[in-house]
Each structure stands twice: as C-alpha cells, then as structure tokens.
C-alpha cells in the first residue's frame, strides 16, 4: 500500500458489491482524507447506503479494496475510529436515550469518561431535554438526534452520515450542519449522503455522485486529487 493511501481516512479501490444479480456498487474508487467532507449524492437506489455500509465494514465488497486508516480489516482499533449514522436508528426502543448511550459507551470501553462524553454529545445534538425518555416515545427527528449522538459517542475520526438532515426541523438542520463543519475543523473525515445537496453546498470539499452503483462524477477533495482516480461512467 502506498504511503499516500495509508494516510487517508477512507479509500475505495475498484469496489464492487453485488447481491445476486443486482449490482449495488460497480468499480467505485475514491478517497477521503482527515479534515475533509465529501458529499455522497445520487438518486434512490444509487448505492449510497450500501457504500456507507461497505465503508463501515458491515458489508464485504464482492471485489476491490476498502481501506480505513490504512487497514483492510475491521480491527477493534479501526472500529473505534468509525462512526456510522445509518437509516435505522441503532437504538433500543425500551431504553431511554441516555441508557442507550450508556450501553454503547460500555461496548466502546469509554470507561470513566463515558458519563462526561454522553452529556457532551447529547448537548451537542440538542437531545438533553429528552435524554430520559424511552426511545419508543420519541419523534423521528428526536431519534435522529439521539442516533447522531450515538454515532459520535466514541469520538470517531471517520464519520459516515446517511441522510443526517432528513426528518429534522429547520433549527435542527442548522445545528447539524454547524456540527458537521465543527467536526471537520477538529480533523474528522466525513462522508455525508443527502438528497438535500444545497445543505452541503459551500462546506463539502468533494462530491461523489452515484448512479445505479456506478460513479457518475467525482470531485476529489484537495488532499486526494492524485490518490485514486475512479472510472467515471459516460453520461447516457
């Protein structure tokens, strides 16, 4: 592996993912460095969520390579550095927001700093007021905020955010957008999918557009311009 690729937060090299006959991703290559935001866009069924799941090691690519901080395998150290906000909330319905975070904090071995970290992330995402309410009583937007808190609980260096703005009110959208900028400032690498592309305008350093699993276009962030050049599909 070249030193250039090893220093990246996330590298996809010719990644294909198929489910039987269905092609979810085809020859996807791109890279993302620390302190950068890449917007991942495309229509429904373009493969955005699959790409995030592959990046988080939840799905194995059918072919190609995925490197996270230079690692091909999800070692415990690498897992600690990945935060995923998925479509599903990843929250237990019968536990409160705080109990959910406490449970995950234990699995991430946060130890003594767990309580402080939980308080901080709840405050960051604006979920303090309903921290004691069972998840099943929360609205979609509230769940989204708690899910975001869960995703950043372990202070990961690579954040994979699947539609972080969907279902949020205007104030929460602004808060989330500001958080994304703040996380980039702290040196985190962010891969963010959204249908509301205007929300990432002016803050995204690069953009990857998918169309039926193939790269439609790729605007690389500054640090990755020579790292990998993906095959870009011809416009029909």
């Amino acid at each position: 592996m070249s030193e250039t690729l090893g220093s990246k937060a996330l590298v996809f090299e010719g990644v294909c993912k198929t489910f039987g006959e269905t092609v979810a991703l085809w020859q996807v290559s791109f890279a993302l460095g620390p302190g950068e935001i890449v917007a991942l866009t495309g229509g429904n069924g373009a493969g955005k969520s699959t790409l995030l799941r592959v990046a988080a090691f939840l799905l194995k690519p059918t072919s190609g390579r995925v490197l996270v901080f230079g690692q091909l395998r999800p070692t415990p150290d690498v897992k600690r550095r990945i935060g995923l906000l998925a479509h599903a909330s990843f929250l237990y319905e019968d536990l409160s927001a705080e109990e959910n975070l406490r449970f995950y904090a234990a699995l991430y071995a946060l130890g003594r700093e767990a309580e402080e970290r939980i308080a901080r992330v709840l405050q960051e995402v604006g979920a303090e007021d309903f921290r004691h309410r069972p998840v099943r009583t929360l609205s979609h937007g509230m769940r989204k905020r708690v899910s975001l808190a869960r995703a950043v609980l372990s202070d990961p260096d690579l954040l994979l955010l699947d539609e972080p703005f969907s279902g949020l009110d205007v104030a929460s959208v602004e808060r989330t957008r500001a958080l994304i900028v703040e996380w980039r400032r702290r040196g985190k690498a962010l891969l963010v999918t959204t249908h509301q592309t205007e929300l990432l305008e002016g803050i995204a350093d690069g953009e990857l557009v998918l169309d039926r699993g193939r790269v439609r276009s790729w605007r690389a962030p500054a640090s990755c311009r020579s790292a990998v050049s993906p095959p870009v599909m011809e416009r029909a």
């Binding site: 897992k79 995923l84 990843f90 929250l91 237990y92 319905e93 995950y104 699995l107």
Partner: peptide, 14 residues
C-alpha cells in the same frame, strides 16, 4: 433486529 441494533453491535470493538 429492531432498528438494526445487531449492526450497531457489530460496529463496536466488542
């Protein structure tokens, strides 16, 4: 299975 919590467990270093 509800809310894909098993995936969340797989994401942790546990």
């Amino acid at each position: 299975r509800v809310n894909d919590c098993l995936d969340a467990l797989r994401l942790t270093p546990a």
